[in-house]
């Protein structure tokens, strides 16, 4: 039922929010122009000289940038893969638990880390992985010599990936738990009558039933291939682990602000945004096509 009067109301309701987006999101987007210029603050964004793709060429020529892109891919893809495997396994395991009070307690506890900030967790994990921290104390009992995990290039990535999984697996499992709850109990009973054991029930009933959700979540995760987690790495890294831990976002921040390479860092950021944009578009197209998923 369309009515012009209602439409005026609808538009009026959108005005303030859209205004905020225009001011704080759309207008700054024009700033990416400095990626194609040699931005000199004294001359301003428009007055600086146009240099075309110079900064993009430099980006691909620099070994440092290539390494940052590699770090980003390794960390982000590992997180994506593990953040599907672990929550799915956990959801299945939790579904098998028959002691209901314990189930509730476990659920309460595993969702909590999702709501804690990386600033706080950064302090806590620095304690845990420090030379005198819990990890070294426990491994020491097994004769492993203590190490400085947070500043070692052989362990930093592992810590980043592991702690991220730790923080998000519980929350990520919610969606799979919901999918499992939707499974018709009769299917399980039928399987039990056929003599299926626990393992077979998981393999032949549970997993196939949540297959669609798993595929959908994997597709949607595609858009995050260049998002390795700025907040986490920013609060946990140090110059000693730049070789393995520096990602595009942290690199853009350091280049753009600390080292004042405004144009170059904008170019790197634009490169990342561009690729991410394509990937997200692709992932939603796929999700729409195969899972009938739409975000709006």
């Amino acid at each position: 039922m369309r009515s012009v009067k209602n439409e005026i109301y609808y538009n009026a309701m959108m005005v303030i929010g859209i205004g905020f987006l225009l001011v704080f999101s759309i207008i700054p987007m024009f700033g990416v122009i400095i990626a194609f210029k040699d931005f000199v603050p004294a001359k301003g964004m428009l007055g600086s000289a146009w240099v075309g793709l110079k900064h993009f060429n430099r980006m691909f020529a620099l070994a440092e940038t290539r390494n940052v892109i590699r770090n980003t891919l390794v960390i982000a893809i590992s997180k994506i893969v593990l953040n599907i495997i672990v929550p799915v396994s956990f959801a299945i395991l939790l579904n098998e638990l028959k002691v209901y009070p314990v189930k509730r307690v476990v659920q309460t506890v595993v969702y909590l880390p999702h709501f804690l900030s990386w600033v706080i967790l950064g302090i806590m994990f620095t304690n845990i992985f420090s030379y005198t921290g819990i990890v070294n104390q426990i491994l020491g009992k097994f004769g492993v010599p203590p190490q400085m995990y947070m500043i070692s290039n052989s362990s930093f990535r592992g810590i980043i990936i592991g702690t991220d999984v730790w923080k998000t697996f519980g929350y990520g499992a919610i969606i799979y738990l919901a999918a499992i709850t939707n499974i018709d109990p009769n299917t399980y009973e039928a399987a039990a009558i056929d003599g299926a054991g626990r393992w077979q029930r998981i393999w032949f009933v549970t997993l196939p039933s949540i297959q669609g959700t798993i595929v959908l979540m994997s597709t949607l995760a595609l858009g995050n291939v260049l998002n390795a987690g700025f907040d986490q790495i920013f609060t946990m890294y140090s110059p000693l682990v730049y070789p393995t831990g520096d990602i595009i976002d942290t690199y853009v921040y350091r280049m753009g602000i600390t080292k004042m390479q405004y144009s170059f860092s904008t170019a790197v950021g634009l490169f990342k945004s561009g690729i991410s944009f394509l990937l997200i578009t692709l992932s939603y197209t796929l999700a729409n096509k195969f899972a009938d998923y739409t975000i709006f």
Partner: peptide, 12 residues
């Protein structure tokens, strides 16, 4: 400090 100064340089 240098980060803030950097922002000041950009903003003139």
């Amino acid at each position: 400090f240098n980060n803030k100064l950097s922002l000041d340089i950009v903003a003139g």
